[in-house]
Amino acid sequence: MQRGFTFAQTDCAKCHVIGRYGARPVPEAALFRTLHTLFPVEDLEAFAEGITTGHPSTPQFQLDPAQIKDLLTYLQSIQG
């Protein structure tokens, strides 16, 4: 779980709230703690295929299977 948190903190926290509390740095960015209201967190296949978005400021990510597991474990731990 710590490695998933570290990835989120390093690569996602500039825009997203990655913890259980806090305000969004970027208002339209999803709150990690409420992702489960949008889709089942365990089914985030975008992480397996690489994250791409239509937002130019969002970097692309390609995670290996261990990183995906770590990040999903972290995300599941903070769902409200």
Rank of each mutant, 00 (worst) to 15 (best):
I68D: 10
T58H: 10
G80H: 03
P56Q: 15
F39K: 07
P25W: 08
G19A: 11
A13W: 00
Q9L: 13
Q9S: 11
F39N: 03
Q9N: 11
A23N: 10
L35F: 02
Q79I: 07
Q60A: 12
Q9R: 06
F47P: 01
Q9K: 08
G80P: 04
Q9P: 01
V17I: 03
F7R: 01
P65Q: 03
P59G: 02
G19R: 07
F7P: 00
A30M: 08
I18K: 02
F39D: 03
E28L: 10
D43K: 14
M1F: 04
T52H: 11
F32V: 05
L31I: 06
R24A: 12
A13C: 01
H55R: 14
C15M: 07
E42F: 12
A66E: 15
E45S: 14
P65G: 01
M1P: 01
Q9Y: 11
G50W: 01
L31Y: 07
R24W: 05
Q76Y: 04
G4C: 06
Q2F: 01
E28S: 08
F47C: 06
L63W: 05
Q76P: 00
T6Q: 14
Q60T: 13
F47A: 07
L31T: 03
A48P: 00
F7W: 09
D43F: 12
T34F: 12
L71S: 09
C15T: 04
A23Q: 13
H16P: 00
P25L: 12
T58V: 14
G4Q: 04
D11F: 13
Q60C: 07
S57E: 15
Y74Q: 05
L38S: 07
Q67G: 05
T58K: 06
H16M: 05
F7E: 04
G19Y: 09
Y21S: 10
L72T: 13
H55G: 09
Q9F: 10
I18S: 03
I68Y: 11
K14S: 09
L38K: 05
A46D: 10
E42S: 12
E28G: 02
H36C: 03
Q79L: 07
Y21M: 11
T37N: 10
Q67S: 08
T6I: 15
S57Y: 14
R33M: 09
E42V: 13
L31W: 05
